[in-house]
Design a protein around this nucleic acid. Structure first.
Lengths: 203, 203, 203, 203
DNA sequence: TATGAATGAGTCTTCATTCAT
DNA sequence: GATGAATGAAGACTCATTCAT
């Protein structure tokens, strides 16, 4: 009776190891230079097992992306649980965490950005990727709304405010990742300056 | 008498077609997934002709990049020739043109961004790609300096101001290119809003 | 039960067939003109199988060389085990076997000769090919030394005697392989004549 | 009237330059690494001119080989013109020159050896290559005959003596070319030793 | 369930050669 | 007589994927 259970667990572990190996390789060699063979070698299994757990290469990538989103989202839940004083602070924290995650996992971020597609359907944000990954940006929208409600942000269309904020944040991340040689401000200061520009600029 | 002339023209046309095909494929399949074979098929010539016009794959990319760069720079010259009233207006125009060019030539922009490298050497911005070196951003820096001189921007380190501006601008471009489905503001307005955020935020 | 065993055998056989095919092609078209593709066609398998059994082209060659070397060396061990009366007879036997092997396996010999490198380091002969190191000629040197000790060869520098002997022997082999149409003496007589010239000439 | 003459001369010159370029490249990069393109680049002409002067690549090689033979043969004529005291001295000189030429033009020698084929038809030496190239070895045979006539070599079949001499000489050359790292005797001494072994060994 | 074996199509690049002009 | 343009085949090697077992 415990046998099928154990088998299922082993299988889940193997899936985990594959995803971990894939991520490690993505991080080390970049998205394009990771092959099924290399993943198989990394976990010391045959190539074929991978196909028994994932339909194809792109499914691995999708799963990885979804996990990344979940990672960010988990951090968000912590922040929200802490219930800081003002929604503006929450928004700032949320953005800070987003940036931190992106720069700690640059290959992840690149992959995520290169493969995800965001759109708005019936006023709702939707993304092609890993289930509920749009939750991340939902949190942004919620906090923007709250800020508006408390007069901390101007009373403008939420998606407008969102796109201005998102753009600046993404731009900063993207540049820091792609041009590591540039003499960037220390990360913390960079984020602070950016937030201050946004806060003052949008006010 | 006109024969060698015509031949030269044909060759130039072929070169053009190769560059166009390459760009089209970069757009469709992504920079990494374009092969010499595919380009050859696209133009319906043998692989070898390409090698008779370009040393190797990277030369095609270099040429494409150089074209993009020339396009932006030509627009800058026009703006500077017009000598608008204040350096802040010049800076705004320059950014507006930059964004316009990027969104009119999204593949150029992607390619450019993915393959170029920026760094600062002896206080001088250096943007390199392949053997060539570009200086699109010099104009940005000059105008930022002028704005500082006239009290239109705060007296802070130029590279600091630059990275905040550049980040927001790049982010906006990058997002609009990669998420065409998102309900973006009309481009003109988006730029205007962005500039206003920056102007107010940095002041 | 016997299944994995049979599979292993099949794999070994395939490896054998690849080596044989490679050798056949080396013989027919010359060492430089053998490609992985041609080997694959010869065995009627895809190119990729070869790469599943050999790391790269040079490994095929290395293996072939190693086989050749082992073949010669085995014969030497037999001769030395027999302990003939005088070292001069041993030397003669050794040379005779060397010639016999070379002419029975002309492709091996050509390949070996074309790709190996001999040098002397710290007074020690070193014959290298790929990562491996061989010492076929050590036996020659030992016997030359012995002959000197018993006054059967003049008391001259061993490497000098060696190069004179080696040159004549290699020349004979090389010519017989490359000019099969020439009216050579019967092999046995040829070797005998050569040895007699050397023995008398060096005395 | 002088015009066609001049054209013919130009053509001959061009042929000369092609052969020279080819030889230079063979010497520098080895036989296998020379391509028609590279020859064309070396002489700064189009690839096609080469095809107007040579049927194909192998014709260039053949011509080059023939020239090599002629080069040796010319040296032989000088030696023969000098009419040294004994035919044995002549034979020694002839061999010495042969070795010298081979080691001064190792790529030539390799090529020559790799592509020529010697045979005996109706008691006459014949080679596949460049017209009268077998003349070189005819001279050897003549001198061997003379030596026999004067009792300087034993009265044995000329081709037998020839093959013993030729083998030793070729072996020495071949080894020195292929194993440049071996601590060979200085060339002059090596030749002298070899000749002494042959003279004494055959006597 | 997991494997080893195998494949066909693909990567960039170079080759000798030909043909219209 | 000489050229520039073009080609198809080939070079070593890697890829994602499948199939019999």
């Amino acid at each position: 009776m415990g046998i099928p259970e154990r088998k299922r667990r082993q299988r889940r572990d193997l899936k985990r190891r594959i995803l971990d190996a894939a991520e490690r390789l993505f991080a080390k060699d970049g998205y394009q230079n990771v092959s099924m063979r290399k993943i198989a070698e990394e976990i010391e299994y045959s190539t074929t097992v991978i196909y028994s757990l994932f339909r194809d290469k792109s499914e691995i990538i999708d799963d990885l992306i979804a996990e990344g989103y979940r990672g960010v989202y988990r951090r968000y839940e912590e922040i929200l649980a802490r219930r800081p004083d003002s929604p503006l602070e929450t928004l700032n924290s949320i953005i800070t965490e987003y940036v931190a995650f992106a720069l700690e996992n640059p290959n992840h971020y690149k992959l995520w950005f290169a493969t995800s597609e965001i759109r708005v359907i019936d006023g709702q944000l939707r993304m092609r990727h890993g289930g509920r990954s749009y939750h991340v940006y939902h949190t942004w929208l919620e906090q923007i709304d709250q800020c508006k409600a408390e007069g901390l942000l101007p009373d403008r269309d939420t998606l407008t405010l969102f796109q201005l904020i998102w753009g600046s944040v993404h731009g900063m991340i993207s540049l820091r990742i792609h041009h590591p040689q540039f003499p960037w401000l220390p990360l913390k200061q960079h984020v602070k300056e950016l937030l201050s520009v946004l806060n003052r600029g949008l006010a």
